[in-house]
């Protein structure tokens, strides 16, 4: 039992130490602005197509699935409301986080992992740089900034997907009705929830991805293992934390 527990506790300790350092570095120079911008480009611009595709198809799919149920109650005019609430509160943040985790937690883990196994991380320390400052903090900052933005775009295009399905394809409702029902359904705390979630998820993705990268051992095989674990772990945590944030906002009311 103790033998099983020891590596888990050690992993947790390493994760907490790394995360702590990454946050402390926010207030310590040097700040690697170039690296932050480069990461914003890689993560933000790079993930844009897949996040938008995910958004538009989820918006359209919700509409399609809901249309039957809504028709039954004669409430098909309310479809905008359902798309807006489910996208802004839940699907937008979670689906964007999952796609970004799949794309970038793996990218971070494999990039940092291969740097680790080829002694580039050691070299960095030997040559006067704190690897956490140079590698982890820029990724953390970059993704925490771009993830809420990506989510906003995913929400918007998701609503558009819902509109295309509801109004153009299925003729469930009219232009005006769709958008006004969507607009009226949303309250400020939905928007807040919809922006807080990606901000938190982004940090999970960056810290988990970087952690698995920085603690990679065992050559090319180790890099592969780290990459897989980074994606699995970050996605699981996104879902777990999503529940707690949802619960928190329900308690607020």
């Amino acid at each position: 039992m103790l033998d099983w527990l020891k590596p888990q506790v050690l992993a947790l300790q390493n994760f907490v130490t790394l995360s702590g350092r990454a946050y402390v570095n926010l207030f310590r120079s040097p700040h690697y602005l170039d690296d932050i911008i480069l990461q914003m480009d890689t993560i933000g611009v790079g993930s844009l197509p897949i996040v938008l595709l995910t958004g538009i198809f989820s918006g359209a799919t919700i509409t399609l699935q809901m249309s039957r149920a809504l028709n039954q109650y004669g409430a098909s005019g309310e479809v905008g409301q359902i798309v807006a609430i489910s996208l802004v509160r839940e699907l937008g943040p979670v689906l964007s986080a999952v796609t970004v985790a799949g794309r970038n937690a793996s990218g971070m883990a494999s990039e940092l992992g291969s740097m680790k196994v080829t002694e580039q991380i050691d070299a960095m320390r030997a040559l006067g740089t704190d690897p956490t400052q140079k590698l982890v903090t820029p990724r953390l900052v970059a993704i925490a900034v771009v993830q809420p933005l990506l989510t906003i775009l995913a929400d918007a295009i998701g609503l558009l997907g819902g509109y295309l399905m509801a109004v153009v394809a299925l003729h469930l409702t009219t232009d005006m009705q769709y958008w006004s029902s969507a607009h009226q359904a949303l309250e400020y705390d939905d928007i807040l929830q919809g922006l807080l979630k990606p901000f938190v998820f982004a940090q999970i993705i960056a810290l988990v991805g970087c952690y698995y990268g920085m603690f990679t051992t065992g050559g090319a095989q180790g890099v592969g293992r780290s990459t897989t674990q980074a994606v699995v772990t970050s996605i699981v945590w996104v879902f777990v934390v999503n529940l707690f944030i949802g619960q928190f906002f329900i308690n607020l009311k």
Partner: peptide, 23 residues
């Protein structure tokens, strides 16, 4: 502390096994 080491390393050079170059 790491900071003192950073200073000490200024007078030390290292060649890593595979070169350790930043690719």
């Amino acid at each position: 502390p790491e900071q003192d080491w950073m200073e000490a390393r200024a007078a030390m050079g290292i060649l890593f096994q595979e070169g350790g170059l930043f690719d």
